[in-house]
């Protein structure tokens, strides 16, 4: 198991998990959210190719367009 931070909260995740499956596990629609990994935005098309590392800091947030 890996120890990560997700939106400021400590979490444990499977070591084989990629970013796409992590987002899916949160029950949110991929096209409605954005993901920041260790301070850098990760384009959605890269999520399946990036595997979570120990101590990663992730921020998952809604795509907002309101004005």
């Amino acid at each position: 198991m890996l120890n990560i931070q997700l939106n400021g909260e400590a979490r444990q995740v499977d070591s084989a998990q990629d970013l796409a499956s992590l987002v899916q596990a949160q029950g949110v629609k991929q096209t409605q959210v954005a993901l920041v990994l260790n301070g850098e935005l990760v384009p959605r098309h890269r999520w399946p190719h990036i595997h979570i590392q120990d101590n990663d800091n992730l921020e998952l947030f809604s795509a907002v367009a309101g004005g």
């Binding site: 409605q32 959210v33 954005a34 935005l41 384009p43 795509a63 907002v64 367009a65 309101g66």
Partner: peptide
């Protein structure tokens, strides 16, 4: 550096709107 489309590509959908979510 990235542009707005690098942040939210064209197929991005709005999860939150003031009209439906409030503000």
């Amino acid at each position: 550096s990235g542009c707005y489309h690098c942040l939210f590509p064209k197929d991005t959908e709005s999860a939150k709107r003031c009209a439906s979510q409030g503000v």
